[in-house]
Every structure is written in structure tokens, then in C-alpha cells.
């Protein structure tokens, strides 16, 4: 019996495909956060940037989980009514449930819908979540499918937007060092004053809700390395998802705030541990550094920007 257990264990170990972190997170000497892509808008716009923020849509999960509830029509109605005021769309990851072909197809339809209800050339920044490289798909498959990279930088007037890869719940030293260098260089080169950092997995969470503990960056050293990098990088708002219930504001410092956004899909579960389904309008006043997050519940008919279910305001 003991020999059988040992044999079973060895068989399990040798049948696994094992990779070391730098096979997925090595940058091979390149820095993806330099030479940011520029986002433009009409010259007569005011100082305020406006973003639609979605996370954890898990498109097609309804085929595997009957408890999922999603209502895209109210989001599209909102976009139709406010398309001129939306500068870009931020997708914080886990927009699909598995990396299968039907999920990629579904995501392309969703992206087309977002563009048709705003502008054809609207910038959509799509971050890698842990579900995108899932069930046989890979990060490379996802990048090729949507013609994007898991780590990118954008410059939008006075604001830099850094999209990070946290799909494996770690960042890796290459990515952290690249971000640190880029934050310093880009700020000097372009004179930007604010940073948005987009990461699917949150940096951390305060308080006694230990469900958050399991849904944030796993290693305290990784978290501290990122907090130091961001603190030295200037005024920063970190946008994250992954937790689903979310609705957590981390005030890391006077000039660094993180908000864990709730999931776009709703799901009823005992214990109020899941989201009711939300989308958000996030604005940054580049004159004052004030960030406003307005939350809209997916089942609210005729949503108006002036009538959100929830509103949070803070400065960075």
C-alpha cells in the first residue's frame, strides 16, 4: 500500500508541466512601459478624464453556472446616452470565463458592442485576468487573439496608465523593476502628474474580511515591492478587480489609493459574498487630482450619470 501511494505521487509529479515564474513574467531586457501609446481626444475638452470601468464579466460562465446573472442592455443604454463624455474604457480582467474559442468569440462580440454604443475608435484597455489564460489557453494566445500585450502603458494628457500582468497572482521582479523605471522616466519625459495602475489582482486589503486575503497578491514581499514602486512613482490610483464582491477602497497613502471594483456579473450566493453586478464611471480631475467613482447596478433601468447607486470621491 505504501509503495502504491509513493508510485501515485511520483506519477502525479512527473505528469505535471512545471514552469518557473520567469518563463511567464520575464521581459528579456525590454521595458513594455516605455514609449506609451497616446490616447487623444478633442482639444476643447476640460481637464477631467472619464472612463467606463468593468471587471469580471466572465462572459459565457452562464453556460457552466446557472446562478450567473448579467444585464448588458442597461450598460449599453448608459453608453448610448453618454458616449460623448466617455474618453476610454478600462476592462480589469476576467472578461471571459475560460480561454476557449467560444469565449474569445463572445469577447469579440462584446468589444464590438462597446464600440458600437460609444465610438468606433474609442480606446479600450483590456487587462489580463487569471481566467483569460485558462483551460488550455495561454497568455500568448490571448495576446494574439486581441492584438494586445499583457503589460502596456498609455499616456492620456496629464495621466499615465500602466496595465500590469497579475494573472498568476505575482508580478515578478522584472515587471516591478520595469514599472519603477518607467514611472520615473515617463514622468520626466512627458511631464505627467498622475498614474492609473490597472491590475486584475488587487495589491492588498485591509480589515478583517479574510475573503479578501485570498484574492489579493499572495506574497507580502511582492505587495511591498509594488507599494514602494508606486509611492516613488507619484500620485497614483490603482484599479483592481478579481474579488467579485469588491467595493473596497485601500488608502495606501495620501497619494496612492486603490479601489477593488465589484464584478460586472451578478450572482446570488449565501452570505453576500458575490457581486450584484456593477459597472462604473470613473473620472479624474487633472486640475485637482480628485477621483470620483460612480457605481451603477446592472438591473437599474434608464441609468443616469447624475444618479448612481453609489459614489465615492477621494484625492490622489
Amino acid at each position: 500500500m505504501r509503495k502504491m501511494y509513493l508510485l501515485l505521487l511520483i506519477t502525479m509529479l512527473i505528469s505535471c508541466d512545471i514552469a518557473i515564474f520567469d518563463e511567464k513574467l520575464s521581459l528579456n531586457g525590454e521595458n513594455p512601459f516605455l514609449n506609451p501609446m497616446e490616447i487623444t481626444r478633442d482639444a476643447d475638452e476640460d481637464d477631467t478624464l472619464s472612463f467606463i470601468v468593468l471587471t469580471d464579466a466572465h462572459l459565457n460562465r452562464e453556460y457552466r453556472d446557472s446562478g450567473i446573472h448579467r444585464n448588458e442592455d442597461n450598460l449599453f443604454y448608459f453608453l448610448d446616452q453618454n458616449k460623448d463624455d466617455i474618453d476610454a474604457i478600462l476592462l480589469l480582467g476576467d472578461m471571459i470565463d475560460d480561454g476557449e474559442e467560444m469565449d474569445y468569440e463572445r469577447m469579440h462580440v462584446f468589444l464590438d458592442d462597446l464600440r458600437s454604443h460609444t465610438r468606433e475608435d474609442i480606446q479600450i484597455i483590456y487587462a489580463l485576468g487569471n481566467h483569460e489564460p485558462n483551460k488550455g489557453s495561454t497568455e500568448e494566445d490571448w495576446e494574439k487573439e486581441f492584438d494586445i500585450s499583457s503589460m502596456e502603458a498609455f499616456i492620456f494628457e496629464d495621466t499615465m496608465i500602466y496595465k500590469l500582468n497579475s494573472a498568476y497572482r505575482i508580478f515578478g521582479s522584472d515587471q516591478i523593476n520595469a514599472l519603477e523605471y518607467a514611472m520615473r522616466e515617463n514622468s520626466e519625459k512627458y511631464g505627467t502628474r498622475y498614474n492609473f495602475v490597472i491590475t486584475h489582482v488587487p495589491l492588498g486589503a485591509k480589515g478583517l474580511d479574510q475573503s479578501l486575503f485570498e484574492f489579493t497578491i499572495a506574497d507580502a514581499d511582492e505587495r511591498n515591492a509594488m507599494l514602494k514602486t508606486i509611492a516613488e512613482g507619484g500620485s497614483t490610483f490603482t484599479l483592481s478587480g478579481h474579488h467579485h464582491k469588491g467595493e473596497v477602497l485601500n488608502s495606501w497613502s495620501a497619494h496612492h489609493k486603490e479601489y477593488i471594483f465589484p464584478a460586472f456579473h451578478g450572482r446570488e450566493v449565501i452570505g453576500d459574498l458575490e457581486s450584484e453586478g456593477w459597472y462604473h464611471l470613473v473620472t479624474l480631475d487633472q486640475g485637482t487630482g480628485e477621483v470620483t467613482i460612480k457605481a451603477y447596478q446592472i438591473d437599474s433601468d434608464n441609468p443616469s450619470p447624475d444618479d448612481p447607486e453609489r459614489k465615492i470621491t477621494f484625492s490622489i
Binding site: A19, E23, H131, A218
Partner: peptide, 15 residues
């Protein structure tokens, strides 16, 4: 182990 390996690959974050 690094976390969230839904596929067959086990990613190591520390050796």
C-alpha cells in the same frame, strides 16, 4: 507555487 493555475502548468514563484 504561484497561484491560479487552472491549466496543466504549475508555475513556481520560489525555489
Amino acid at each position: 507555487l504561484a497561484d491560479y493555475m487552472e491549466g496543466p502548468t504549475i508555475l513556481l514563484s520560489d525555489i
